[in-house]
Every structure is written in structure tokens, then in C-alpha cells.
């Protein structure tokens, strides 16, 4: 039972990241391999604000999501003029730099040692120290993010995003400033995934840079590809499957030293095979 609660919590936290990435790659056609970097910014931002400034969880998490959004604003503006492939490559580099900062800025992040002793949150006087209570919190956040995704895509703003994905030049001719739309969705996506990073930090009560590498971004990308582009529902199904597979691989009993690499082999295969045979993904509405 405890174990089921743990898996569901990880699914909820990862699901937020996957839905946030679907806004970028699935709905707007912007392939980003930097979600883990923004999750890291969120997790470290929230942790430092909570432990050093004594700010309560919710305020700290929202504030660090804002920080992540502000960083995404700057990065998004710089990356705008990068053509498709270089845009993707830029996000890979960004993730590596953020990781290097987390790893090497010892005085702030304690480097590879990580930061222990992150307490579970108390929101509006309710304590979430209990695992089941915390799962409910994560599920509520996931639901809220899911609803936000739905609202965005039903709005005029969302329709323009779809148009950018289908034919950016055509929509630009109609007078829409596609740059603004692309930056705004990048900022929204970064802020959402940063919030999931905060949940992750407070759930495990410990963070270190190794949770926010390019490989972790590839994991989130594999989820969205598997679930299907342009479908928030698919992103969540993909999360259930891959987080589930992640846990199942644990039981097959690979030696610990290669378990991580076995997972990477698995994600790599998903990316290759889906591109070859099912580029739409399981529930995708859009074929890249």
C-alpha cells in the first residue's frame, strides 16, 4: 500500500512535467530537452527559500516557479531566432549548463552533496507530512495543471499556438506576433515544471543535481512521445506507463550498477521505435 502511494505520487509529480512539456512540443511544435533544468531551478529555488529564508512551502514554490519563468523569458527570447534543430540543441546545452551550475555553485547548492532535510509542506494550515495526504496534494496540483492545459488550448491563445505548430509563416502573415506566443508558452511551461520540481524536493526531502540532467529531460520527452503529441491525456497515460516500467525494471533485478543504464536503453528504444512506426504516439492528435 505504501509502495502504491509512492508510485502514484511519482506519477503525479512526473505527470505535471509531462503535461507542461506537451504544451511546448505537442501543442506548439517546440521540441525542448530542458524540462529537467527548469524542474531543478524550481526545486533548488523552493528549497533555498524555505530553508534559508523561512518562507512557507506554497509561497516558496510559487516564487521559485516565477524565477524559473523569468529565466525562461530570457532564454526563450535568445533562442527565438534559432532554427528548429538548433533550438533543440540550445535546450540541450541549457540543461547541461544549469546542471553544471547546480553541481559547482557549492556555496549555494552544496554541489554533489545535495541538500537534505527539506520538510514536507503545510498549506493553509493543513499538514502534508503524511504520504497519503501528500499524494492528494500532488494529485490536486496535477488536476489543476491538466485544467490549465485544457483552458489554454481552448482559448484564442491556444488556437494561435496550434497555428504556429501547423504553419508558423502563414499565421505570421495574418499579423500574429508568433515570437510572443512562443516565448509566453515557454515561460508557462517552465513555471509549471518548476512547480513539479518543488513538489519533488519536498516529497523526497532531499535533492541533488543528478536528478536534473539531460537524461531526465529525455525521460520526460520519451513520456510525451509515447503518450502522443498534442494530448494532455496521452501525456498522463505515458507517465503511468513509463514510471510504471521504471518501477517494474527494479523488480526484474538488474544489478544496481546497470539499472539506470537499462532504463536509458529502454527510453532510447522508445524514441527510435515510435519515430519509426508510430510517430503520432499512442493518443496523439498531431503528427510531427
Amino acid at each position: 500500500m505504501d509502495y502504491a502511494v509512492h508510485i502514484l505520487t511519482m506519477i503525479a509529480i512526473t505527470g505535471i512535467a509531462a503535461v507542461s512539456l506537451n504544451l511546448l512540443i505537442g501543442e506548439t511544435g517546440l521540441v525542448s530537452v530542458a524540462q529537467a533544468a527548469f524542474a531543478g531551478i524550481g526545486a533548488y529555488g523552493m528549497t533555498l527559500l524555505m530553508l534559508h529564508a523561512g518562507i512557507p512551502f506554497l509561497a516558496a514554490a510559487l516564487f521559485s516557479a516565477l524565477i524559473a519563468g523569468a529565466i525562461a523569458l530570457i532564454i526563450g527570447a535568445i533562442f527565438l531566432s534559432l532554427r528548429e534543430v538548433y533550438y533543440v540543441f540550445g535546450t540541450v546545452g541549457l540543461n547541461m549548463i544549469v546542471w553544471a551550475i547546480l553541481l559547482n555553485w557549492d556555496s549555494l547548492t552544496r554541489g554533489p552533496l545535495g541538500i537534505p532535510g527539506i520538510t514536507r509542506p503545510e498549506v493553509l494550515g493543513i499538514s502534508f507530512a503524511d504520504n497519503t495526504a501528500f499524494l492528494i496534494l500532488c494529485a490536486v496540483v496535477l488536476l489543476a495543471v491538466f485544467a490549465a492545459h485544457y483552458a489554454i488550448m481552448k482559448s484564442n491563445f491556444g488556437r494561435v499556438l496550434h497555428a504556429v505548430r501547423e504553419d508558423e509563416e502563414a499565421i505570421a502573415v495574418l499579423g500574429y506576433k508568433t515570437e510572443v506566443y512562443k516565448i509566453v508558452i515557454f515561460v508557462i511551461s517552465a513555471a509549471l515544471v518548476a512547480f513539479s520540481g518543488s513538489l519533488y524536493a519536498t516529497y523526497l526531502s532531499y535533492i541533488n543535481p543528478s536528478a536534473f540532467t539531460v537524461n531526465d529531460s529525455i525521460f520526460i520527452l520519451a513520456i510525451v512521445i509515447l503518450g502522443g503529441l498534442g494530448s494532455a491525456y496521452g501525456a498522463i497515460v505515458g507517465t503511468c506507463m513509463l514510471v510504471g516500467a521504471f518501477e517494474a525494471l527494479r523488480f526484474i533485478g538488474f544489478p544496481a550498477s546497470i539499472a539506470g543504464d537499462m532504463r536509458q536503453v529502454f527510453y532510447g528504444l522508445i524514441l527510435i521505435l515510435f519515430m519509426l512506426y508510430l510517430p503520432r504516439g499512442l493518443f496523439g492528435k498531431f503528427r510531427i
Binding site: V31, E84, V85, V88, I218, I225, G268, L271, M275, I288
Partner: peptide
């Protein structure tokens, strides 16, 4: 190109691991 790129990311991830 995006499909090719994602597939090549898969090749990279698989090969490295």
C-alpha cells in the same frame, strides 16, 4: 526533421547507455 532529430536522440541515448 523533427522526427529524424528525435529518432537520433534515441540512437544517442541507446548507444551511450
Amino acid at each position: 526533421n523533427t522526427v529524424l532529430l528525435i529518432a537520433s536522440l534515441g540512437v544517442f541515448t541507446l548507444g551511450q547507455a
